[in-house]
Design a protein around this nucleic acid. Structure first.
Lengths: 225, 225
DNA sequence: ACAGCCATGTAAGTCGTTACATGATTGC
DNA sequence: GCAATCATGTAACGACTTACATGGCTGT
C-alpha cells in the first residue's frame, strides 16, 4: 500500500502527467520505495477509479494523449490519514543477511567477495545519501521548491527537516552496513588464517559433508543426545 | 528466490517434515526472511518437482499422511551455487522511511508518536538479536547442534562465526534505528518549540494548504517569492 | 535519417498475504 | 471430553518483476 501514498504525496505538490510523476518519483520517493513505471501507470488508474486523483486528457501529436493527474480532496485526506496511521512493522526480509548466515557452504574466498561487494555498494550508497541530504537541506531540488511554494510557511522547516533526517539516517545506515561488511572481511581473514593450508569451504570439504549427511540414512550410526 | 534457498539450507541439516521445517525455519532463517507456512508447503512441492528434494510419505492416523523431505545432491549443488553467487542489491523499500519523509502532512504529536513506535520496536528487536547471537555463539539451539554434527569439524568455527556476525549486525542495525528514532523525537520537539502555540500540522493548517493548492488554478493570485 | 528522450502502456509470471479449511494426536 | 499442538493444505487477491510494444518530438 505504500506506492499509492508515495504517488499521492508527489501529486500533492502539483498536477503532473504519469511520465513527469515517474521522473519526480525516481528522484525522491523511489529512494526509499522503488517502483518501475509499469507499476505506476496502472496505479494511477486505480487512484483515479478510487476518486483520489482526477485525470485530464490532453492531445499530444495526432492520436496520442497525455493525461495530467491532480490530487483530489479525498486524495489529500487519504494521504494525511496514512501519515497519521501507525503501521505494523514490515516482516524482515534481507537476502544478503540470509546468505551471510550460510556462508559456510561456500569458500572463504567467496565469503570475502560477498562482504566486499556489500561494502562497495554501501559505501557508494552512503555518498549518495549524504549528497542527497545536503541537496534537500539547501532546498535545491525542483520538487522541493514547488513544495515550499505550496505549503504554508510555518511548515517549511519541518518539511525540510524530516526529509533531511530520513536521508541522514539512510547515510548512517549505509555507514553501519559498510562497517559490518568490513568486520565481516576481517572475520573471514581470521577464519582463513586458522585454516591456512587451503581455500576452504564446502567445495573442498563437500564430499565430507555429503557423507556426513548420508549417515542420516543409518540412524544407528548418527544417533545423538 | 530466497525462500527456496533458505529451505534447502535447513534441509541440508537433516530430513524433516514440512511442519518441522516450518518450525525450524521460524526459529532461524525467518528472522531475516519471513515466510508463512502457506508459502512453505507449496514451495516444498516445487522443490520436489525440480528434484532438489525428495519426499517420503509416511502414514499418519488412518488417512493422514506425513511427508518427510530430504535434500538431494542436486539440491546441495543449488544451495552451494546460491551461496557463491553475488546477487544484485535489492531495490530499497522501507515503508517507515517513506512515511517519515512526509511527516509534515501530519501533526507534530503524530510525528512524535511515529518515531516513538519505531524506537520501541527497534529497542525490542535489539534485545532479541543480542540474545539470539549469544545463543548461537554458545551453539545452543537444536538445529545448530545437528548442523555441527553433520558438518566437517574444520568448518565449525566458520559456521558459528558467520551466524553470530549476522545477528550482531542485526542488533547493531536495530541500535542504529533506535538512535535515529530518538534523534527524530528530539527533532520534533525542536520543531514544536519553534511553533509553541498549537499542535501544528496539516490538520490545523490544512485549509491553508488546500487553498494554496487551489490557488494554482489562478496563477496570478498565488505568485510569490 | 537517426539517436535520444518523451510518453504510455500491456502481459505473463512470480512472490507474498490473509483467510479459510480439515483432521490427528497427546496430555489433562 | 477438551484444549493445545501436530500437520497439511487451498484459494483469492494484491504487489512486484521483466519483457515487450508502440509511437511522438527534437535536434543534428
Amino acid at each position: 500500500m505504500s506506492l499509492r501514498h508515495a504517488l499521492l504525496a508527489i501529486l500533492a505538490v502539483e498536477p503532473m502527467t504519469g511520465y513527469e510523476l515517474t521522473k519526480q518519483f525516481d528522484r525522491s520517493a523511489a529512494n526509499v520505495w522503488h517502483a518501475p513505471h509499469s507499476q505506476i501507470y496502472p496505479e494511477l488508474r486505480k487512484l483515479e477509479t478510487a476518486g483520489l486523483v482526477t485525470a485530464e486528457s490532453v492531445a499530444r501529436g495526432d492520436h496520442g494523449i497525455k493525461r495530467t493527474y491532480s490530487i483530489t480532496e479525498a486524495g489529500l485526506d487519504v494521504l494525511v490519514g496514512w501519515v497519521e496511521e501507525l503501521d505494523p512493522p514490515a516482516p524482515d526480509r534481507d537476502a544478503f543477511q540470509l546468505k551471510a548466515t550460510y556462508l559456510e557452504y561456500g569458500s572463504f574466498a567467496n565469503a570475502r567477495r560477498q562482504f566486499e561487494a556489500h561494502l562497495d555498494y554501501h559505501e557508494e550508497l552512503r555518498r549518495r545519501w549524504e549528497v542527497h541530504a545536503q541537496v534537500l537541506e539547501q532546498r535545491a531540488t525542483a520538487l522541493m521548491q514547488r513544495r515550499l511554494e505550496v505549503m504554508p510557511p510555518e511548515l517549511h522547516d519541518a518539511l525540510v527537516a524530516y526529509k533531511v533526517h530520513v536521508y541522514r539516517g539512510l547515510a548512517e545506515r549505509a555507514r553501519h552496513e559498510a562497517r559490518w561488511a568490513r568486520r565481516g572481511i576481517a572475520l573471514v581473514e581470521a577464519l582463513g588464517a586458522a585454516l591456512p593450508a587451503e581455500d576452504s569451504g564446502l567445495r573442498e570439504h563437500g564430499e565430507g559433508l555429503r557423507e556426513h549427511a548420508e549417515l542420516d540414512d543409518h540412524p544407528e550410526l548418527s544417533e545423538r543426545s
